[in-house]
């Protein structure tokens, strides 16, 4: 495992910790899209079907369990926890995420590495992860101002994607038979979705001002 990949996994982990911190410390999930969180839970459940069939490393297995449990816990909290539930911006979080699930599944049936149960679900999870941030970005755009922890959550999530791209470039040059075009192209699409957010994030950071997304 190269340094970019490790740094990517760690920023991914940090993003989840920041989100958990926000929810636990403020007992609020305002600014967070439940739809995006539901999509991530589906992403991890679909992708890690191999948890019990393909052992890669202790690191891999532990991270998989952490991602599944944390994503399910966040959804549970936003749906069931009394105080957290009350702070949910339901009227701003109206993106029809079921369409994304359907479209990604159909696409996975058409484009996959192998036509097996696990491989189709793996491809589905890759496509769904690429677009799962959309409801979150739409919510932020609608609400305009973004609180610190929410901004940092999305920033770390975007950083994770950018580092994974560096990881693929590194692997492409260092591994003889590295061809992961499904993951790479989806990853590029996913990272491109953050471009706008990153632009305003760096602007606010440079000017030392609160993060504001123009409508």
């Amino acid at each position: 495992m190269n340094a970019f990949r490790l740094a990517g996994d760690i920023t991914h982990l940090i993003s989840i910790l920041v989100l958990l911190l926000k929810i636990y410390a403020t007992k609020s999930c305002s600014g967070i899209s439940l739809k995006t969180q539901e999509l991530y839970a589906v992403v991890f459940l679909a992708r890690y079907l191999d948890l019990f069939t393909d052992f890669i490393s202790v690191y891999n297995s532990v991270m998989k369990v952490v991602f599944i449990l944390s994503s399910v816990a966040i959804v549970w909290c936003m749906r069931r926890h009394r105080a957290v539930k009350r702070s949910y911006d339901k009227e701003l979080d109206t993106f029809r995420h079921y369409y994304l699930v359907g479209a990604c599944f159909v696409f996975a049936l058409l484009v996959h590495e192998k036509f097996t149960f696990q491989e189709v679900f793996w491809a589905f999870s890759i496509y769904l992860e690429a677009v799962a941030i959309i409801p979150q970005l739409v919510l932020l755009q609608r609400s305009g101002n973004v609180d610190n922890l929410t901004g940092q959550y999305v920033f770390f999530l975007g950083a994770y994607r950018a580092l994974y791209i560096l990881n693929w470039i590194y692997r492409y040059f260092t591994e003889a038979k590295f061809s992961r075009w499904i993951a790479c192209i989806s990853g590029l699409v996913q990272t491109a979705l953050y471009a706008d957010f990153f632009y305003y994030y760096f602007l606010s950071w440079k000017n030392n001002a609160k993060l504001n997304l123009p409508a």
């Binding site: 891999n60 991602f67 994974y164």
Partner: peptide, 10 residues
């Protein structure tokens, strides 16, 4: 790392 069949990334 080695990557024969399964997906080694998260």
């Amino acid at each position: 790392g080695s990557e024969p069949e399964g997906h080694d990334e998260l």
